[in-house]
């Protein structure tokens, strides 16, 4: 991720010659964040790192066991299952969700009637996303006698219980995640609106049509926001918990087919009272997400355009 910052630094070296003394200002602007980092965030994070090297059942004091928890992870077949489930979930649902969000944002960005209402309606599923009601609703839609199968029956296809079949349950979770595209959509919308109008005006004067304007202005100017959404949705998808918890009834079923990593971690920590192991799992996840994010930042040098 250093590349992003370096890029800024290098492109603007001349302008920043005058501003050598920013350190002090930075300390001022970052003061609340530093306070939060060291007083609120760092302690619990460090504690969880320590706990990952202990046998900790929450009820009695933790006992140091060295790398035991990490070693156990390699021998845990369910952990492997949960990694497979999670990777499938992340790499299928994130691109689909972002594509849906971007497409809708582009359509809704144009001045048209009822825009505010459409935007709000499309955002609604995101408001409902983690509600307990979703469990029942999803059964009603994707169940053996659900809405989807009723529609399929009209065209002569006999469906199955999508939400409860081990081969399909994960797909319904992916659909659920795509369906809650409201958050990235809103960010895209805000991003589209932030593109200075003067660029389009200048392009029009130069005779560029709407399609050229889209590719040469909208797309590059939006890349920082696309990048942001990608990084954040990846991080979020890897940590998704609530939807899988609600839809599977809390256990990642049927037959572990929706056992997302964080769901497994939660069950280990709180249901099985194995918080030491859960902490180790969390730090392993941090390594995965961190690695993924680093790759993202490194790659961003080639496609993300900053105007500053």
């Amino acid at each position: 991720m250093s590349s992003v910052i370096q890029e800024v630094a290098s492109t603007r070296r001349a302008a920043s010659e005058r501003r050598k003394g920013d350190g002090r200002m930075a300390a001022l602007f970052l003061a609340p964040w530093f306070a939060g980092l060291f007083l609120i965030t760092a302690g619990p994070m460090a504690a969880s790192l320590y706990l990952s090297f202990t046998d900790y059942d929450l009820l009695t004091a933790p006992a140091w066991v060295g790398f035991d928890n990490y070693v156990r992870m390699f021998e845990d077949p369910r952990l492997l299952t949960s990694l497979q489930v999670t990777f499938t979930y992340v790499f299928v649902s994130v691109p689909l969700q972002l594509a849906a969000a971007l497409a809708l944002a582009l359509v809704l960005d144009k001045g048209m009637r009822g825009l505010a209402l459409y935007r709000s309606v499309y955002y609604l599923p995101s408001l409902l996303g983690g509600s307990v009601a979703i469990a029942i609703l999803w059964r009603q839609i994707f169940g053996a006698d659900g809405l989807v199968n009723q529609v399929l029956a009209l065209v002569g296809i006999e469906g199955t219980g999508w939400v409860s079949h081990p081969d399909h349950a994960l797909n319904t979770l992916i659909i659920l995640n795509v369906w809650t595209f409201g958050a990235p959509m809103v960010i895209f919308l805000a991003g589209l609106r932030q593109i200075p109008r003067m660029y389009y005006e200048a392009a029009s004067i130069d005779g560029a049509g709407p399609i050229r304007q889209f590719w040469s202005i909208t797309v590059p100017m939006l890349t920082p926001i696309v990048f942001f959404n990608l990084v954040l949705q990846l991080i979020n998808a890897f940590q998704n918990f609530t939807q899988a918890f609600v839809v599977s009834g809390g256990n990642g079923g049927p037959a572990d087919s929706t056992l997302l990593y964080t769901l497994y971690l939660y069950r280990k920590g709180f249901a099985d009272l194995d918080m030491g192991y859960a902490s180790a799992m969390a730090w392993f996840l941090l390594l995965i997400i961190g690695g993924m994010t680093l790759v993202n930042f490194l790659a961003s040098k080639y496609w993300v355009h900053y105007d500053d």
Partner: peptide, 18 residues
């Protein structure tokens, strides 16, 4: 700041299950 963070950690750990 680092000292503060370390103090917070120590405080937490001393109390976990303590």
């Amino acid at each position: 700041a680092v000292a503060a963070g370390a103090a917070a950690t120590a405080l937490i750990l001393s109390a976990c299950g303590g």
